[in-house]
Design a protein around this nucleic acid. Structure first.
Lengths: 144, 144
DNA sequence: TTAAACCTGCGAGCTACTCACAGGTCAAGC
DNA sequence: GCTTGACCTGTGAGTAGCTCGCAGGTTTAA
């Protein structure tokens, strides 16, 4: 099986698979023409990688897990250990994204009642510059 | 004012400022020693960049906005136009993050009641491989 | 035996920094 | 005047996880 076929089979891009090959997560053989050929074992390995990725593991994490299993050991302890910091990071990023979306929505709402401005001096755009202070300072309305 | 002083003043890293210089968002003069020197105008420009960044604009967006203002035009229409797709993307990423965190939390909960496994054949780790199907397929149990 | 369609691996590029590094600047001390 | 050391500089390269571009190879139909 070549890259494109595997990609179709697992619903990922051929580039993604090539990337995994490049970083050593997948190690397919090469046929006479220098093309990568994937066997049954490679397919389940890819499937594993995609599952792990969708659980928030980094490719480096996945490499560690695969290494552990490759040594014949149980990878479960590593898996349990690695997901903790990933979960913390994910929660942090989620909170950041939530705050960002709220800031953006407040901005859009606020701006809808503001006219366009002309730049003058060091002033560039009052939408972003001046009034956005209301969006950042959570201390309540300052001038209304 | 040199890089480090400006960095302290605006509470960003010197590397961040150097990055903005490198990509052309900041265009400070050079003194006799080849060091960048920032004037009052550069400071307010940086402040603007940071505000815009915190509203979810990309550096490329910010460049467009600054270009528009630099031509003497009002950047507001561009700003209003650019924030729409950014807000959509941010909402999308927020939803993705929310789903990811939920998957991770479900996984951790589920795994706490599962024992460690040994790898055998194409099977690598049942935590990620087998049981995680419950986390992905919302359609209910398929074979139990 | 071409022609066209499809596929390949590999290099480079993407965002927004961050780090490493060789070397420059400058005040304090002798 | 000279040296030591702290601090600072710009530039090149590296980060994650792909994604794109490209020159060229393979395969299939006419």
């Amino acid at each position: 099986m070549k890259v494109a076929e595997l990609a179709r089979l697992e619903s990922v891009s051929a580039d993604t698979i090539r990337h995994y090959v490049r970083v050593g997560l997948l190690v397919p053989e090469k046929d006479g023409s220098g093309y990568h050929t994937f066997n049954r074992h490679d397919v389940s390995r890819l499937r594993f990688i995609l599952h792990a990725r969708d659980l928030g593991f980094t490719l480096e994490d996945i490499r560690l897990i695969l290494d552990e299993a490759g040594k014949g050991k149980s990878p479960c302890p590593v898996v349990r250990e690695l997901i903790e910091p990933r979960l913390c990071e994910a929660r942090k990023r989620l909170a950041d994204m939530q705050a960002l979306v709220e800031r953006m929505e407040s901005a859009v709402t606020l701006w809808s009642s503001l006219p366009d401005c002309e730049p003058c001096g060091d002033h560039i755009c009052h939408l972003i510059e001046g009034d956005s202070e209301q969006l950042f300072d959570k201390g309540g309305a300052c001038c209304e």
